[in-house]
Simulated assay, not measured.
Amino acid sequence: MQAILYVCHGSRVAKARAEATAFVERCKAKIDVPIQELCFIELAVPDIATGIDICVQKGATRIIVLPILLLSAGHAKHDIPEAIRQAARRHPHVDIVLGKPFGVHQTMIDIVADRIKEQTVPLDHESMVLLIGRGSSDPDTKRDMAAIARLLQENINVPRVDTCFLAAARPTLEDGLYEASRSSYQKIFVVPYLLFTGILMKTIEKKLRSLSSTNKQWILCDYLGYHPLLETIVKEKANRLLLVNEGV
């Protein structure tokens, strides 16, 4: 029997955990698999090991582990695979298959574009976009964010798209805001490339409040959140892995 285990990041913020849970419930309704469970990498329960154990207890013989993560970094490359390795030793008869994070995907570009279009301020030749990522020491994170920025610039025809990071990578948030403030663009659309609310969003909001006295117009867009289009990516990834088992 097949199962899907959705792996979300986790947060101490109750609203963030609730957002993740609600998103996974919507995904479950779109995928025809008898066993579907949610777990978290950190800061929330159940953890990955428990999530796998629950699937096995419900009769799963093949578990598709789907990371609900934006980019490939430490969690996707190390933490989740290690948890799976440990689970495989406990459940040697169970086939555990690891999917990939959302990554550089056209639908992700569409979601960012939606967040920008939601604003009452229109994009024009005086506008630029500043994408703010969570950050990681993994070089793939910077590479993927740069690719997303290029695709976004092409898709929405904005003159400039910069990237910066909240932690563990450069340019930092402070660097990104400084460069934007020095630019010739009057309107800076700030897009938090984050899945959920929490401390990082508060950090961005605080930094922007400190810039309110400058001659620029700073437009803070909503974080990506669990946008409905993300459900299509999850369904696409799940179905691809489910079809593998059927020999398609």
Rank of each mutant, 00 (worst) to 15 (best):
P159K: 05
R170V: 11
D162V: 03
M201I: 14
D138A: 12
D175Q: 11
M145Y: 12
G198K: 02
I188H: 02
A168M: 11
C164N: 05
R160V: 15
K216V: 00
A180G: 13
A168Q: 07
V158Y: 04
S181R: 01
R150I: 07
L200R: 09
N157G: 04
S183Y: 03
L208Y: 01
P159E: 07
A147Y: 04
R150F: 04
R182L: 14
R150T: 09
Q153M: 15
Y185K: 07
F189C: 07
I156Q: 02
L177W: 01
E154A: 14
A147H: 08
Y178Q: 15
S210T: 12
S210I: 06
S212W: 01
M145W: 06
A149L: 02
L173G: 04
I204F: 05
R182H: 07
K206I: 04
S213M: 10
S137D: 04
S212T: 12
V191Y: 00
S210C: 12
G198M: 04
R143T: 11
S137R: 10
L151C: 10
L195F: 12
S137A: 13
D140W: 03
I204K: 10
A169C: 12
N155H: 13
L173M: 09
D144E: 14
R170T: 14
A146I: 08
A169V: 08
K207N: 15
M145I: 07
R143H: 13
T197A: 04
D162S: 11
S181Q: 03
G198F: 03
A149C: 12
C164L: 07
A169H: 05
M201D: 01
A167N: 09
K216S: 00
N157P: 02
F189D: 00
K187Q: 06
F189K: 03
D175Y: 06
R182C: 12
I188P: 01
D162A: 05
L200T: 08
I204G: 07
I199D: 07
R170I: 07
E154L: 10
I148V: 15
S212I: 10
A168T: 08
A169Q: 13
K216L: 03
E174F: 08
S137M: 06
F189G: 00
V190Y: 01
K142R: 11
Q186W: 01
T203W: 05
I148Y: 10
R182D: 03
R209T: 13
P192M: 07
E154V: 05
M145H: 09
S137F: 00
F196I: 10
L208Q: 02
P171M: 00
E154C: 06
G176C: 06
L211P: 06
I156G: 01
